[in-house]
Computed example of a mutant assay.
Amino acid sequence: MFVNFRRIRKCQWLQLMTTCLLLSVVMVCWEELDNNVVSHVKSYSYRYLVNSFTFINKSLTIPREQARSFSNFQYLLDHPDKCINQDVLLLLFVKTSPENIERRNAIRSTWGNETYIQNSLGVTVKVVFVMGTIQTKKEEPAWSKRSGIGFQEQLLQEDRVHRDLIQQNFLDSFHNLTLKLIMQFHWMHSRCPHARFLMTADDDIFVHMPNLVSYLQDLSSKGVTDFWVGRVHRGAPPIRSKNSKYYVPFEMYPWMTYPDYTAGAGYVVSSDVADKIYHATLTLNASIYIDDVFMGICANAVGVSPQEHVYFSGEGKAPYHQCIYNQMMTSHGHVEDIYDLWRVATHPQVKQRTSGLGGSLYCTAVKLTLLCKPYHFNTYPCKAAFL
C-alpha cells in the first residue's frame, strides 16, 4: 500500500486554512457578542444594584431659561385652531421630513385619513405632520424642480390644500429629533390639551386605525391615566461605537443604562402623561439627540413607566397575514406597500376568517410559525401568538 504524501500535505493545508477561517469568524462574532453581553450586564447591574436614575434626573436638570433654547423656535407652519370645539380621541403626530411628500400623501389616503376615521369609526382623530426646515445647501427634490417654485413655497402649497403641516424653524435632521419630540408635546399643550390621547409615529409606519381606535375607546371608557404604551426597551445601554447611527459619547450621557423607553417608531400616551412630559421638558437638558431615549428620561423624571403591547412593533416589519392583521396596532418600515397593506389589513373578511374557535386555533398555529423564530425578529414577540 502506497501513501500519497503530496495529497496528505494538501489536506493538511486545507484543514489549516479552514480552521483559520473558522477561528476568524468566531473571533469577530464573539467580539460583537461579548460587547453586547457585557454592555447589558453592566446596564442591568447599574439599573438594579446602583439604581441612580434619581441622580441622572438631577444631573440633567437645568434652568428654565436654558431649557427654553430647545423649544423656543418660530412656527413657519401652524394650525392653532385644529382641535377647537372638537372631542378629539387621539392627536396623532407623524414625524416627517419636508421632502417626504409622497409618504404624507400615502398616509392621508390610508390610515391617516381623518374623514374616513370620522365616518367609518365614529371618532375624531387629528393627524398632523411635524417637521423642521430643509438644509439650504441640500439639492431640491425632483418634484420641486419640475414645479419651478422654491421648496418652502411647495410646502406652503401642500399645506393650503391639506392644512396639516406643523413646521418650526430648526434644521430637520436625525440629530434634531429630540427637538421634534419637544415640539409635539408643546403643540398639544397649547393647541389641543383636551385630546384624550397623543400618539407619535414615523412617516414609514403603518397604523391599523380600526384596531387602535377600538383599543383607545375601551381605555378611555375606563378613565385610564398614567398610560404610555408601545414596544418597550428595558435596561438598554448607550451605544459607544462611533460607527453606529445611535452612538452617544460619554460627554453627552456618561451613565451605563437608559431609563425604560418605547421604540420611537410609534407609541401612545394618555393626556395626563402628555402634560407631565411637557412640564418635564421645561427643566431637562435635551441635548441627547435620540428622541425615544429622551422621552424615557422625561417619563422617568415624572414617575411614568411604559407598558408593553405585543402588537406595537419595534423597528421591524410585521409579517403579512390576516391572522396578524386581526390584532395589529403598528408595523414599521412601510412606504411603497402602504396602499396594499391598508386594503388587505382592514378588509372585513379578516375579522370573519379569524373569529370563532376554528379561526382562533388556526391563527395561533400560523402566528407560532410566523413569530416564534429561532433568531431575533424585531417586530411582534413570540408570546403574541397566544393572544
Results as ranks from 00 to 15, higher is better:
residue 8 I to P: 07
residue 18 T to F: 11
residue 19 T to V: 04
residue 22 L to P: 08
residue 35 N to M: 11
residue 36 N to E: 14
residue 43 S to E: 13
residue 47 R to V: 00
residue 51 N to A: 15
residue 60 L to I: 09
residue 60 L to H: 05
residue 84 I to F: 10
residue 91 L to T: 08
residue 94 V to H: 10
residue 103 R to E: 05
residue 107 I to M: 06
residue 116 Y to C: 01
residue 119 N to K: 12
residue 121 L to I: 03
residue 122 G to Q: 06
residue 123 V to G: 02
residue 129 F to S: 04
residue 133 T to Y: 09
residue 134 I to P: 06
residue 142 A to W: 13
residue 145 K to R: 14
residue 156 L to P: 00
residue 160 R to A: 03
residue 161 V to I: 14
residue 162 H to K: 10
residue 166 I to V: 15
residue 170 F to V: 04
residue 172 D to C: 06
residue 173 S to G: 07
residue 176 N to K: 00
residue 178 T to A: 02
residue 181 L to E: 05
residue 181 L to F: 11
residue 183 M to H: 05
residue 192 C to H: 00
residue 194 H to S: 15
residue 197 F to W: 01
residue 197 F to V: 00
residue 199 M to P: 04
residue 200 T to L: 10
residue 211 N to K: 09
residue 215 Y to V: 03
residue 220 S to R: 10
residue 227 F to R: 03
residue 228 W to C: 03
residue 230 G to T: 00
residue 232 V to R: 00
residue 243 N to H: 14
residue 250 F to N: 13
residue 253 Y to W: 15
residue 255 W to D: 02
residue 261 Y to S: 00
residue 265 A to C: 12
residue 276 K to V: 06
residue 276 K to Y: 10
residue 278 Y to G: 02
residue 287 S to G: 10
residue 287 S to W: 05
residue 287 S to A: 12
residue 287 S to I: 05
residue 288 I to T: 06
residue 297 I to G: 04
residue 304 V to P: 02
residue 309 H to E: 11
residue 311 Y to H: 14
residue 312 F to G: 00
residue 315 E to Q: 13
residue 318 A to P: 14
residue 322 Q to I: 14
residue 325 Y to Q: 02
residue 338 I to D: 08
residue 339 Y to C: 04
residue 340 D to N: 10
residue 341 L to H: 11
residue 342 W to Y: 14
residue 343 R to V: 08
residue 345 A to L: 09
residue 347 H to L: 08
residue 347 H to D: 15
residue 355 S to K: 12
residue 355 S to P: 07
residue 358 G to P: 03
residue 361 L to E: 13
residue 366 V to H: 02
residue 371 L to I: 12
residue 377 F to N: 15
residue 378 N to F: 11
residue 380 Y to G: 05
residue 387 L to N: 14
